[in-house]
Design a protein around this nucleic acid. Structure first.
Length: 584
RNA sequence: GGCCCCGUAGCUCAAUCGGAAAGAGCACGGGAUUUCUAAUCCCGCGGUUGCAGGUUCGAGUCCUGCCGGGGUCGCCA
């Protein structure tokens, strides 16, 4: 008996030894067909004069534990023997971490995943949550494959947008502090930013009404002038500017930390743009002296990426200061200096930066840096509202904390009122987070998500709480079994399988291949779909067949199925970052 | 205008290097609870996969053109 990867490895070496090529592809048999696993041998048919039976015979000859075979055109549907399934259940329970819920495919790999990377001038919103959940889940996926993962976060803590918040505070909120107004620090600073933008827009409108063209108005507005002056003061290390900057950022960090603590996310390495924004200059100058980059007449430095279809890219302004990409070059370099043995460096960043990240990679390649090919942009699409994109200025942003609170309230209303108050809140919080996480992870990352605040997030159907509920019920059933002194015995032979039992066994068996697929594709939605289907199959069994009151050996089989189901679903939920209450 | 992503049921999404008769959830209609938690289960309804060609044993998937939505493109981050 072997789990997915070991089983396939055995088969493949047997096929290779017999010269069968190309190798059949193996997948779970679709529900409407009879069988457990399907071998796709279409590509092999030519070698057997288009005779599927002959080809199937050759392919199956070295494979043990087959109870039944159906050959349909280029498909071989095979059904395992009860003895195979008995052994599978026993081993999945005995050592799940050895190839079932944990794999060793990525052992020895060291992967850095940079995600979240927020601006520090406003609180986290729904888009950040998509980034956060995606990043965290990808980390957990690769940890399950055996890799060592470093979670990194680059805080965009300086720049004109930060200065806008600072001016906003000075003009409209000083000397008040978050604690005095009873607000989370990140929300308070966000208010400062919004107040700035509102007043700034009013100034621009006024200038425009006086006949000033918009482009000039945007620059001439006194508030903008003030923000720019503040940025210059900050860059000149003037104490007053630095002190306010530091204090306001500390408010934001407190707020962020509270949200991240609530969501159970921790980073291993924090990068601050205030420390990295001058990095990269040395790299650019080196490239310049080697003739890789060139200097324009006005003194600005450029890269020519037209050979790879990316045009020209500015690297240093004419005053010699860095632009964003310069900082990125420096940070990439720093990452590999700090962790020279990184096998891969993943950036979880929205798809509006596809071009930017392509440029970054191309520049590193031009500089002939060996890690150029190790960086990868995990690009994800935006979360959109029915009205279009979220816009801070228009007040259409769905705030992360608010959303969590709203979902908590919704979930709370569904909890059993006889439970103690604090437990009701614990349950509500877990259900709320499951709902949001699953909702944001169940879609392909590169596809936009449409979020309708009015309808909010479901708690039924294809949702996080559905999986949680399945888990909780199964767990409670086991507790009942324990109370009654019923134990699973791995040595008891299996009875003939009911359809619901066989369907569940089959899905359970597929777990390792889905873990691998989701990790390699950097796509947790694959696992979300797997987990939903798994739970659906367990629910069907639970609903239609008795477990504890069934006679032996049926009871033993269903107990074993329940145990392995919990093992598998537990792994799925953990990987998606979803916790489970004791009851719900 | 150039480049990139997306277009599948009324809505939100699946479909594993191209593989079986394109599947789920929501919504809608019907049914199931003396039985391990009904946040559940079962049945029904619902499709010219944006359009037109091409490649092949086979195309939602690959290629070409077009239509529609979004993003992005030398001194913002």
């Amino acid at each position: 008996m072997a789990f997915w990867h070991a089983l396939l490895a055995n088969w493949q070496s047997a096929w290779k030894a017999r010269g069968l090529e190309p190798l059949p592809r193996v997948s779970l048999t679709p529900p409407d067909q009879k069988g457990n696993l399907t071998l796709n041998i279409f590509p092999l048919l030519k070698a057997f004069q288009n005779n599927p039976q002959k080809a199937a015979q050759a392919v199956l000859e070295p494979i043990p534990h087959i109870a039944q075979v159906e050959v349909v055109r280029g498909f071989i549907n095979l059904t395992f023997t009860p003895a195979f399934w008995q052994e599978f259940l026993a081993e999945a329970l005995q050592a799940p971490h050895r190839g079932y819920t944990r794999l060793s495919l990525a052992e020895g790999q060291k992967i850095m995943v940079e995600f979240l990377s927020p601006n520090t001038n406003k609180p986290l919103h729904l888009g950040h949550l998509r980034n956060l959940f995606l990043g965290e889940s990808v980390c957990r996926l690769w940890e399950r494959l055996g890799a060592q993962v470093i979670r990194a976060n680059l805080l965009n803590d300086r720049g004109i947008h930060i200065c806008k918040s600072m001016v906003g505070w000075k003009r409209f909120f000083a000397p008040r502090k978050p604690a005095e107004v009873g607000k989370k620090g990140d929300h308070f600073v966000g208010d400062c930013y919004v107040a700035f933008e509102k007043a700034y827009k009013a100034q621009v409108d006024q200038l425009k009404s006086q006949g000033v063209p918009e482009e000039e108005a945007l620059v001439q507005a006194p508030l903008f002038q003030e923000a720019q002056a503040l940025l210059r003061a900050w860059e000149a290390h003037e104490p007053e500017a630095r002190q306010l900057w530091q204090e306001m950022n500390s408010w934001v960090y407190e707020g962020f930390e509270a949200t991240l603590r609530r969501l159970g996310v921790r980073f291993d390495r924090l990068y601050y743009e205030s420390e990295t924004y001058t990095l990269g200059k040395a790299l650019v100058e080196k490239g310049l002296s080697k003739g890789i980059f060139f200097q324009a007449e006005d003194g600005s430095v450029w890269a020519d990426l037209s050979t790879v279809g990316l045009g020209r890219k500015l690297l240093l302004r004419r005053d010699g200061t860095s632009v964003y990409i310069t900082q990125d070059l420096g940070t990439a370099h720093r990452k590999f200096s700090e962790y020279p043995d990184l096998t891969r460096s993943i950036y979880v960043i929205g798809d509006e930066q596809d071009h930017h990240m392509r440029v970054l990679k191309a520049l590193l390649a031009q500089l002939d840096l060996p890690y150029a090919e190790k960086i990868y942009h995990l690009s994800y699409a935006m979360v959109e509202l029915p009205t279009g994109r979220m816009k801070t200025r228009e007040g259409t942003v769905v705030d992360a904390d608010d959303l969590l609170d709203e979902m908590h309230a919704q979930a709370y209303a569904l909890t059993e009122s006889s439970l103690p108050e604090n437990e009701r809140h614990t349950i509500a919080e877990m259900v709320a987070q499951a709902a949001i996480r699953f909702y944001l992870l169940r879609s392909d990352p590169k596809k936009p998500i449409l979020f309708d605040p009015a309808e909010s997030i479901d708690l039924k159907g294809f949702t996080g709480p559905f999986l949680q509920y399945g888990y909780v019920r199964a767990k409670r059933l086991l507790e009942k079994a324990a109370e009654q002194g019923i134990e699973y015995s791995p040595n008891m032979a299996l009875p003939p399988l009911q359809p619901a039992e066989e369907a569940l066994l089959q899905q359970l068996y597929g777990l390792p291949s889905f873990l691998e697929g989701a990790a390699r594709g950097l796509d947790p939605s694959i696992l979300a779909h797997y987990g939903y289907e798994l739970t659906r199959r367990y629910n069907e069994l639970y609903q239609t067949l008795p477990v504890l009151m069934a006679p032996e050996p049926e009871r033993n089989l269903r107990l074993g199925l329940t145990l392995v189901f919990l093992e598998a679903l537990g792994a799925v939920l953990e990987t998606l970052g979803i916790g489970v209450p004791a009851r719900m």
